[in-house]
Amino acid sequence: MKCLNPVAMMLLVSTTLISTTFNVYSAPALSEPVLMARSSAIATKISALKKSNQRWIEIDLSSQRLTAWQGKTPYYAVIVSTGKDLTPTLTGVFEIQSKLRTARMQGDDYDIPDVPYTMFYSGSYAIHGAYWHRSFGTPISHGCVNVAVDHAKRLFDWASVGTPVIVRE
């Protein structure tokens, strides 16, 4: 992966992450066998989650839709904006690693303070509120999953650290 900007510090206050700055990385091209293995792992994980009563999040890149599930029951669905062709959203099986009420997002061509309701699920990749655009349904991000702020708050309040996140084509 190619780092597009330098690493920044996390602030920890009374064991609660308050704000941070994160890098955005470009993903390397994957071979056909790797893509097939990833697709199989995604299908297997979705099948297992639908047989459970666990909360989980599915992001469908082809429809630009995020669905929050509890087992096989959809809880909430929203239109999102995922990564552009040059800065794609990674597919795979992940889980929420951390949650921040606000974060700063920076890259070579952007610097956005106070990004609300940020849930990191793979390094610097996150589901978060986007107050700077209304183009949901169109891939326009630098790899993150952009959600309208009110929807992002609802998802942030519903999900916890460890909630599985499935990103598929």
Rank of each mutant, 00 (worst) to 15 (best):
A103P: 02
L61G: 04
E95M: 11
Y110S: 06
N23V: 15
T20P: 02
V80R: 01
Q97T: 13
C3L: 15
T44K: 14
V161I: 15
Q70N: 09
F120C: 04
D85I: 14
R154I: 08
Q54W: 08
D60R: 07
S141L: 01
D108N: 11
V7F: 11
G162N: 09
L17Q: 08
V24C: 00
S141D: 00
H142R: 02
F94V: 05
A29L: 13
Y121A: 07
N5A: 13
S31L: 14
S52Q: 08
V115K: 01
K50D: 05
V34L: 14
T89C: 06
T20V: 02
T44N: 12
S160V: 14
V167D: 01
T44S: 15
T67D: 05
L12A: 11
T16M: 11
P113L: 00
A29P: 04
K153E: 13
A37L: 14
F94E: 02
L61Y: 07
K99H: 06
G83W: 01
M36H: 12
S62L: 14
V78D: 03
D60N: 15
T15C: 08
R38I: 10
R101A: 11
A152Y: 06
S160E: 15
Y110N: 04
D157T: 10
Y76G: 05
K45L: 06
T102V: 15
T138Y: 11
S98Y: 05
P88I: 10
G123T: 07
S14A: 10
L49M: 11
M10Y: 12
S62P: 00
A148T: 11
D60C: 09
G83H: 01
V115L: 04
T82N: 06
L17A: 09
P164W: 05
L90S: 09
H133D: 12
D85Y: 13
Q106I: 03
L4F: 10
Y117N: 08
